[in-house]
């Protein structure tokens, strides 16, 4: 799989190249700003773009805007945003438009190389990866809606779903059995009154509702 990296700090860019190479990606290009990123994605059509949120020239949300362009123009390229701090609006912008192949992580997570690689692979395979801190902050905001009917355990499970984990991953993280997780998830679906269509679709809807990106139905 090929990847493109956009990060303005040269030091960190070198580190990211090494990490992605270790994860088995072929780094086709590593650039320092959003324009160069779009050119590189257009040229290489990678499976993954790893993008810093703050980049020149204005150091605000260049990365987020580039990520939205990439997801729209080249849907086969998954994007992972790296941010210095949690900005829930960025995460919401990204997740409102797309529910697969997106990730939003804090920069310091890169240091946990194994976890970071797992998250990046998950996104490249079409999954999602949200930073636990992003999730915690979103959870804080959405307290007054149907989500308030969830038990603390169910909220934990939903938060892990939002991070992009599978049932097995959730079971491992909470140290419970797979069937217990399935039961929690069914309770969540019931409490959020999600239609009994296929499981993946309901899962995405639950996460979206959790993130406040979709209105409760």
């Amino acid at each position: 799989m090929r990847a493109v990296i956009a990060e303005d700090s040269v030091l960190l860019r070198v580190g990211l190249v090494k990490v992605l190479e270790m994860a088995g990606f072929l780094v086709a290009a590593d650039v320092g700003d959003a324009d160069a990123l779009l050119t590189a994605v257009d040229q290489h059509r990678p499976e993954l773009a790893l993008i810093d949120v703050r980049m020149p020239p204005s150091f605000t949300d260049e990365g987020v805007r580039a990520a939205l362009v990439i997801r729209r123009q080249w849907p086969r390229t998954a994007v992972v945003l790296l941010s210095q701090y949690v900005e829930e609006r960025y995460a919401a912008d990204l997740l409102t438009a797309h529910t697969d192949g997106v990730g939003y992580l804090l920069k310091q997570r890169v240091a946990d190389v194994e976890d970071f690689i797992a998250a990046v692979r998950r996104v490249a395979d079409g999954g999602t990866a949200l930073d636990p801190e992003v999730v915690a902050q979103l959870l804080l905001r959405r307290r007054s809606d149907p989500l308030s009917r969830l038990t603390p355990r169910e909220r934990e499970v939903l938060a892990l779903m939002a991070e992009g984990r599978s049932n097995a991953g959730i079971a491992e993280a909470l140290v419970v059995s797979d069937s217990a997780v399935a039961k929690h998830i069914n309770n969540i679906f019931a409490k959020l009154a999600l239609p009994a269509a296929d499981a993946d679709h309901r899962r995405v809807l639950a996460v979206l509702q959790f993130l406040g990106a979709a209105p409760p139905n």
């Binding site: 090494k18 890169v110 240091a111």
Partner: peptide, 22 residues
């Protein structure tokens, strides 16, 4: 701190993480 020290520390941690993993 953000542009200098923090980037350097993250980079250091990434390299150590790579060393640990490889």
């Amino acid at each position: 701190l953000h542009d200098g020290t923090q980037q350097r520390l993250v980079s250091l941690a990434v390299n150590l993480g790579l060393a640990r993993a490889t």
